[in-house]
Design a protein around this nucleic acid. Structure first.
Lengths: 155, 155
DNA sequence: ATCCATGCAAACCCTTTGCAGTCCA
DNA sequence: TGGACTGCAAAGGGTTTGCATGGAT
């Protein structure tokens, strides 16, 4: 295997400040014909402010002035446009987090909820071959890896 | 990688007829102190009769004489005792299917819904190493592979 | 001036739970 | 017989939708 490459959220690749993230996403949405509205900016801003995968409910609580439906519609739009991705916990709870470039998987800490992206790990090719051996043409896969992050392994 | 080994449901390893499957599962449940009841047998029988991953709702429809709660409770018991396993479709719809031995993953056909088990594919070790590179100690993972089965690739 | 986006509340879907009655072991 | 199991219906939670209003382009 290739040595796995890891990006810890907000460390190795520091993101621009939240406001810039919001502007960036809003402009990308604009290119696709989606309007620039205050509630939508609030949703994006709150999403960007989360330190780890978050739930729709958490965003609703963080944004009491934004309608519940608007939060859900905003999240759906962001997923559809690839700005954020969905994360499934072991108990099947659905969470979200800002997308990073390209295809990757999530390492999720069962203790503190932290998330790290796993990139450069060639599971995909392995799966494609295995699927082919079964006569399947793979079109996609869903993979979540659960465990304990470095901090929680020590504790 | 090791050459992936594949089991197509009901082909390479033909299962005993449905009634025998039911008896087998019921006796395993009995060993764990669970009673042998008619509704439970019906649930197991219906589950065994499905040709592909099924939903709780499908079982309820197939068993109009069995209470909805009983179907759900039966499925939960079967999952807890390892007799059946959960399968997640790409849209996150939850389905079930009879378990096979050991750890494996599912190849799911997006067209016809068929399912094949992927065994002997050492994704796990690859993931463990990748997780370790990120400082994570892996404790588990969830993987579903989506695509088209041999029949549906042709069609 | 459009018509997309929002907010509220109700609707929805899927699953679980409370409870009284039933039936294995 | 006692405790597990069942069925019904109602509750539950998480998410979506209908509709009238508001706001971006």
């Amino acid at each position: 295997m290739t040595t796995a490459n890891v990006r810890h959220r907000g460390h190795d690749h520091p993101r621009p400040r939240s406001a810039a993230v919001v502007d960036d996403i809003v402009s990308q949405l604009a290119e696709q014909g989606h309007r620039d509205t205050e509630p939508r900016r609030l949703v994006i801003g709150a999403a960007a402010a989360q330190g780890r995968p978050f739930t729709a409910e958490e965003l609703c609580v963080a944004l009491p002035c934004v309608g519940r439906a608007t939060v859900y519609r905003g999240l759906r739009l962001l997923v559809e446009t690839g700005q954020i991705c969905r994360v499934l916990l072991e108990d099947r709870e659905l969470r979200y987090q800002l997308s990073h470039q390209g295809h990757h998987h999530h390492l999720l800490c069962a203790v503190c909820g932290a998330s790290a992206d796993l990139v450069g790990c060639d599971v995909e090719e392995l799966l494609r071959q295995a699927a082919a051996a079964a006569g399947f043409r793979m079109s996609g896969h869903w993979l979540e890896v659960y465990g304990r992050c470095a901090d929680c392994v020590i504790a």
